[in-house]
Design a protein around this nucleic acid. Sequence first.
DNA 1: CCATTCGTTTGATCTGCGTCAAAGCGCACT
DNA 2: AGTGCGCTTTGACGCAGATCAAACGAATGG
Lengths: 246, 246
Amino acid sequence: MQMTPDLAKQDCSACPIRHRAVCARCEPDELTRLEEIKFYRTYEAGQPVAWAGDKMDFVASVVSGAATLTQTMEDGRRQMVGLLLPSDFVGRPGRSGASYDVVAVTDLVMCCFRKVPFEQMMATTPHVAERLLEMTLDELDAAREWMLVLGRKTAREKIASLLSIFARRDVLVGAAHTRSVEFDLPLTREAMADYLGLTLETVSRQMSALKRDGVITLKGKRGVLVPDLDLLMEEAGDDSDGGMLS
Amino acid sequence: MQMTPDLAKQDCSACPIRHRAVCARCEPDELTRLEEIKFYRTYEAGQPVAWAGDKMDFVASVVSGAATLTQTMEDGRRQMVGLLLPSDFVGRPGRSGASYDVVAVTDLVMCCFRKVPFEQMMATTPHVAERLLEMTLDELDAAREWMLVLGRKTAREKIASLLSIFARRDVLVGAAHTRSVEFDLPLTREAMADYLGLTLETVSRQMSALKRDGVITLKGKRGVLVPDLDLLMEEAGDDSDGGMLS
DNA sequence: CCATTCGTTTGATCTGCGTCAAAGCGCACT
DNA sequence: AGTGCGCTTTGACGCAGATCAAACGAATGG
């Protein structure tokens, strides 16, 4: 959780309000104010960012790495309710504590803003509040999309749906109209199971099945090669194009 | 979908920004502007409010009755992703179309605001934008709570979780510290199944089981009596107090 | 009054996934 | 090289919930 001075001045395109990429309407002095209250934190794989109920005095967005939001029942059953990948946002303006356990699953760099000045900024600059609302609506859509996965999809479809999420972040256009992708899974089988409402054994079995059927190829322990993204998305039972066109 | 003149002047405490109850900071002229762009619509049970992809030129909140947000796969599998009860909000500022099918499940009255003037209002009055963000965050929390239900709870726990949602809206304090509640189920068994990721048969069986075990009593077709709310919430596997204290 | 329809209940059977158990990898230490 | 540890894979078996099927009750309408 130490500061990383070498990052302190970096111009981070994945900042909470994505001020370079999206908030083009921001005035220069607004950007300056954002830069002033910004700092970076790093976490190691497995390290907690916050436990449910803890006070969180900052909001942040992921620069690199991945983190998970999970909920746990008293008897130990766990459900991941959010997956934070680069550019995703954490922290609730107007709420004192974290609602869920936030844990780094790989080495993680986050771009943070102290909560109090950030909220002041929100209250005075409509752009920021609007951008935050837009991001929250996106999260809500993602959560609802996932409700369909959890409630109605088979184990195989669930795995394919999860792989699609990662695959769609790194699409390569191959020859002959097939889109192939290669990426590293940031999650263990257990974490995948927690996300999908399955057990790790079922996850493992279905991964093997998808491999056997040629939908994916496993490269070492973490690497996954998807020769045909369309085939994967068909396996996921997804009617949409996965947002590739938007 | 006809206008209801008798409602047109009613002071609706469940309006989108809940301006009477919540937006106490609003100036009188802001309230007046809201009143000016407000109108009411009624729908009959079963009637669609909007299909996924349709343009929705208004945002609204539920005054009375209930509506559902559902997602459907090509093969017909359906998952409800949201349940709209009085005071709940529908419609996305900044988005052109509905993301999900919105259907009235009982007779429904909605308090609507034309989208364009509402968004103008949002852009100029920080209260409204903040209130909307707060409401969206609440929805997001509810969606994530529901992900735990869908992913990790047993059929019996799922039913109890759903019943808790309705029960907590109408709590009566009984004698001897037990809290008893009585309410009408606004959903059919099939709709409950769509919400819970189950089949209607399983829903029916588990309802019977809860009745047999004295957790609930069925009054006619739709009426449900919960003699002890704490017992129901224990069945739901809920560690929280259900927000009763907050 | 009966017939139709729509939602609900209940039963019998099947199956996908969970559970329990054991073995197979890398990979980091010593 | 050898040992231990964390993660993954694979197998055997059982069960919760799906599926298929039938009957029931209440409301509606001729």
